[in-house]
Write a protein that binds this DNA or RNA. Structure first.
Lengths: 348, 348
DNA sequence: GATTAGCACTCTCTCAACGGGAGTGCTAAC
DNA sequence: GTTAGCACTCCCGTTGAGAGAGTGCTAATC
């Protein structure tokens, strides 16, 4: 079964192709094994059930479909899905109406990274009709653009960091001594030009040789920047669990399992290494998944952002019996949209 | 059934009380109707099953318990739960070990409102073992403390608002003309002292009579402040859906219903008007719920914050058959904790 | 030679029947 | 007032029959 991960090379006839296509479509829609008779009834293939049966038997021999029980209908194998995705599905593009609508919705949202990530997750879940997951983009290494100090109480200040990539972070800062807004502004005005454009490590080297407050502030600037270096767990959003609760595959306990996958980070850490930086969508079906925990699922993922600068990951997770057309077109479009948004933010 | 919302006044004997208590506890734990025999087997009541049966018949007459089917075990009624909560449960307090642990965890989290709200939701879900919901605190009316302008691109700036209550909001600002950081800082320095302490409406009146950029900036300060006036939809967090997925009450489709309640805001808008500002936890059981949509659930809610200044709501939602002890103690403690955190922020 | 009609067969799914188990109310004895 | 015993009720898991859908095979047809 290991060599199943390679692309199928078998030649099958045009009629077999169209039958396979119908089986996949029908099974995805109904969730029940597909028989020869239902096929002739529901679609107008030009041939009789008997002919379909012969072709089905052949398709089964080649490993594209499978019988769950003797004399039950056929169900696509992972292999069959893969063939469908590669050769029969066509090029999945979201209807341009949907594209415009989504882009418009994003204009309504407050221009802020957090919001985008969360919103992307919910839009993706809805258009794909499955569970979605989106990580906040991660810069290779965060560099400071600006920071501000705002006095909240005599010994408590708000520190606001802005990176080159316009990621923003706020932190409370308990000060060692009493300072008012004027003093704090002076501290910021002095420090900012000296550390602009530097990474956390570079700033850390310069801490010595400044006053007590300044050292204190710098120290927290460094920790704050460090936090922006790596993917933050709270910055991974998922959405759309309700979409799979109805599916027969996920009766009760299995939905819990999916939540585990999403929340525990299993999905991400499993998929991450397999995600080549090739700029298109990647599809993992059943057995092909890089982790055993995902063997029963279909996963469609893409990275977004600007190569070498900021990159994030987004994608969907569903039963192997999912609409790959919807999923792929949705993921592809969302990745493109998020990349565009990053471009807007980053191009200085 | 409407008068059921009032507190039960019936006098029942001490033995009936302890039997009712056992029925509630056993039913909450097992989920199956409780019979006289199981009770004597599992707990050592000093009497025989027959006696228990007599007492149960009496309890049923009084409306505390109910038989779902003839000759099935007994199940508490909403009335019975209410009596249990009021008279039999004792005073629910989280074990002090848990209290310390939770408070400690909050120290680890970044000091930021968003984070607190999200974290509170997840902690509450876990300790209560149900679905939780937490709203961000809302100020009666937001008043500006400070704002900053940070240049991102020649015509794009980041506007950071800080309210008196230390709520922070960032917004992207497309500028009508080109400005650099120095110019923007000057704008901020000029405006801040003139509008400090004012609400959005008060600032709106002063817009005329300033330069083009200033008017532009002020306009956005006003919209930004307005956003902080009201509860933001994205600022309502819930957590713990996985906790109810396993329960027999929520096989499949019903879990979707709960998600609807949480996300659509039905829960909040139903419970909000009924939440008197009395500072303790409020419990709605089944029929007592202010909205029909919640009739099958138990809801435990409390408001937190500082009266008249900042208030938010938090609570849990579960099947009527839920552990009210756990829920109430968790909600009570979290409300207290969040209030303390608000106090720290607000006391200037 | 490919296609199709017909047929016997297999397997799942639904539904009714059934018996064990748990619980009840009642009566009579303690 | 409490309890043992008993007849009765109802749920629930199992079983078995029949309907429905699907299959493979063979023989006839285009």
């Amino acid at each position: 079964m290991a060599e199943m991960t390679s692309m199928p090379r078998e030649r099958i006839t045009a009629r077999q192709q169209s039958i396979l296509k119908l089986i996949v479509q029908e099974y995805v829609a109904s969730g029940r094994p597909v028989g020869s008779k239902t096929l002739t009834e529901r679609y107008n293939v030009g041939v009789s059930p008997a002919t379909i049966r012969n072709e089905m038997a052949e398709l089964e021999l080649l490993g594209f479909v499978q019988q769950l029980h003797t004399s039950g209908g056929r169900v696509p194998t992972d292999h069959g899905y893969r063939y469908f995705v590669h050769h029969l599905m066509g090029s999945p593009e979201l209807p341009s109406g949907d594209q415009i609508m989504i882009r418009h919705q994003f204009r309504q949202v407050e221009v802020q990274l957090d919001q985008w990530v969360e919103f992307a997750a919910s839009v993706l879940a809805e258009t794909a009709g499955t569970v979605s997951i989106v990580t906040a983009p991660r810069t290779v290494v965060a560099r400071l653009r600006h920071f501000e100090l705002i006095s909240l109480q005599p010994q408590l200040a708000l520190l606001i960091l802005v990176t080159q990539e316009s990621a923003v972070r706020q932190m409370m800062l308990h000060l060692p001594t009493v300072h008012d807004q004027v003093q704090l502004s002076r501290v910021a005005d002095t420090l900012v030009p000296r550390i602009r454009g530097l990474s956390s490590d570079e700033i850390a080297e310069r801490i010595p040789g400044t006053s007590e407050v300044m050292a204190w502030v710098l120290e927290h600037v460094v920790t704050g920047l460090r936090g922006l270096d790596s993917v933050d767990r709270t910055q991974v959003r998922h959405s759309g669990i309700e979409n799979i609760l109805g599916e027969p595959e996920f009766a009760g306990a299995d939905a819990q399992y999916v939540l585990e996958l999403l929340r525990g980070g299993t999905l991400l850490s499993a998929v991450l290494p397999a995600l080549t930086s090739g700029d298109d969508v990647q599809v993992f079906i059943g057995d092909e998944n890089p982790a055993d925990a995902l063997r029963r699922f279909g996963v469609v993922m893409a990275s977004y952002g600007i190569d070498g600068e900021v990159t994030g990951i987004l994608g969907v997770l569903g039963p192997t019996r999912m609409s790959y057309w919807r999923s792929i077109s949705s993921v592809r479009y969302m990745a493109r949209l998020m990349s565009d948004l990053m471009e807007d933010l980053y191009s200085a």
